[in-house]
Amino acid sequence: MSKNKDPQAVMKQHMGLKASQRISNTIIYVVLVIISIVWLIPFVCIVLQSLRVEKLNGAMVTWRVGYIFPKKWGLDNYIALFKTDFPRWYLNTFIIAVFVCIIQTVIILCMSYTLSRFRFKMRTKLMRFMLILGLFPGMLAMLILYRVLADLGLTEEHAVPGLILVYVASSGMGYYVSKGFFDTIPKSLDEAARVDGATRAQVLFKIILPLAKPIVIYTVLTAFMAPWGDYVFASYIAHANSLGMNVAVGLNYWLSKDQIAAHYTMFCAGGVMVAIPVSILFMCLQKYYVEGVTGGAVKG
């Protein structure tokens, strides 16, 4: 298009744009509302189902039904949760999450700080090696880990320490995001401190870590949330022993063929119980999460 149109025409174009903008904004609002509804429906449904306490011939209707709105409301499902192993699962998951989030954060920070700041001989080789290692399906390692942990007595009802070990052990592989963050902290800071006589350890603890608060929070948050959602390793190591399950495995167990009729509404209640604290935590620290995710993607 030519650039030298007369100003009148340009003005006209702008006026037209304003009107069309209003239309397009309206369309966008409609789309966004629809998207929001679609996004919320499952969550609303699960809450509604967890409040359903109908009775049929004296027995609770705990199985799956085809309607959304309960015919009778109540908190019976939540109360019933405490008579099952659910509190145990909850506690298991909570313990795992706390330990994992502490140890994993330390490990990831060590790893990413080292790879970002130090230029040692094996550095690039190490990074390439871990990249290749990451291409192997990690699930493959589970079988042997299970056998070894079983020999150590860290499976079934003692699954919690075993799971912590498994989660934490290879967490060094997930250093990418925080390394990307450390790379953005100027190196001149380190050098200035070194000139003033600080050891490398002092540089890390006194200078870099205070600056890296957002990424530390991001690491803590993701490390804390991961065990709440993990199914694979947890199911493997709990090995169908109810005492060693975490919430994901336990609730999934309630949906198995012979359990679902008696536990469906309780599954919903349990799901809500797990979702509320985790999502509140997440929403509070959302800002840091967004920073981490966007930073990580941009740097690759």
């Binding site: 969550f43 449904c45 799956r64 709440w228 599954f267 919903c268 985790v278 999502s279």
Partner: peptide, 25 residues
């Protein structure tokens, strides 16, 4: 939108799979 990240995947996925079951919601 972020709600689906905040809520552990296993809850949302398992529930959605139940919603679409043959006698589901």
């Amino acid at each position: 939108l972020i709600l689906t990240i905040a809520i552990p995947q296993f809850i949302s996925l398992l529930f959605v799979s139940q919603m679409f079951a043959k006698n589901g919601i």
